[in-house]
Amino acid sequence: MKASLLLALVCTAVLVAGARADAPGEPETLVRKVQEYTQKATAMAKTALSMVQESDAAQQARQWLADNADLAKQRLVWLKEQLLEFWKPMPAA
Score class of each variant (00 low, 15 high):
62 R>S: 03
17 A>L: 02
66 A>M: 07
73 K>C: 00
7 L>S: 10
1 M>D: 12
28 E>L: 09
64 W>V: 06
85 E>P: 02
26 E>W: 05
10 V>P: 00
9 L>H: 13
18 G>W: 05
53 Q>F: 08
46 K>R: 14
51 M>Y: 07
72 A>L: 06
89 P>G: 01
12 T>W: 08
19 A>M: 11
84 L>G: 01
20 R>P: 02
91 P>R: 05
6 L>D: 02
56 D>A: 11
32 R>K: 11
75 R>I: 02
54 E>R: 12
41 A>D: 02
7 L>W: 01
75 R>F: 04
35 Q>R: 10
1 M>G: 09
2 K>M: 05
43 A>N: 08
86 F>R: 10
83 L>M: 04
17 A>C: 11
20 R>C: 09
51 M>A: 13
28 E>F: 03
5 L>H: 10
9 L>T: 10
12 T>S: 12
27 P>I: 00
71 L>M: 12
12 T>I: 07
8 A>Y: 02
93 A>H: 14
76 L>H: 13
84 L>F: 07
23 A>K: 05
30 L>R: 13
40 K>V: 09
79 L>F: 10
31 V>G: 01
76 L>F: 12
16 V>T: 08
26 E>A: 12
34 V>E: 04
45 A>Y: 09
47 T>H: 10
11 C>T: 12
53 Q>S: 12
73 K>Y: 02
82 Q>D: 07
33 K>A: 15
86 F>K: 09
12 T>Y: 06
37 Y>S: 15
28 E>K: 09
25 G>N: 00
9 L>D: 15
34 V>W: 05
92 A>D: 15
60 Q>N: 07
38 T>G: 06
29 T>F: 05
33 K>P: 05
57 A>I: 12
41 A>T: 06
9 L>K: 15
31 V>I: 10
5 L>F: 09
93 A>Y: 11
9 L>M: 14
13 A>Y: 01
62 R>Q: 08
18 G>S: 11
23 A>P: 00
89 P>N: 00
79 L>P: 00
68 N>K: 06
39 Q>A: 13
24 P>S: 04
67 D>M: 09
80 K>L: 05
74 Q>R: 14
40 K>E: 10
16 V>E: 13
81 E>T: 06
82 Q>S: 05
39 Q>I: 02
13 A>F: 02
65 L>W: 03
83 L>S: 01
77 V>M: 03
15 L>N: 06
53 Q>L: 14
62 R>L: 07
59 Q>D: 04
37 Y>K: 09
93 A>M: 11
32 R>T: 14
88 K>P: 00
8 A>Q: 08
45 A>C: 06
11 C>M: 14
90 M>V: 15
76 L>A: 15
82 Q>E: 13
67 D>R: 14
27 P>R: 00
72 A>V: 02
76 L>P: 01
29 T>R: 09
43 A>R: 11
85 E>C: 07
30 L>D: 10
3 A>W: 15
27 P>A: 01
11 C>N: 12
6 L>K: 03
50 S>H: 11
58 A>N: 07
19 A>W: 10
73 K>L: 03
22 D>Q: 09
84 L>K: 12
49 L>R: 13
37 Y>L: 07
40 K>D: 08
82 Q>N: 05
60 Q>I: 02
61 A>I: 08
67 D>W: 04
72 A>Y: 04
91 P>K: 08
64 W>D: 08
49 L>E: 14
59 Q>W: 01
43 A>I: 01
62 R>T: 03
2 K>C: 06
86 F>Y: 15
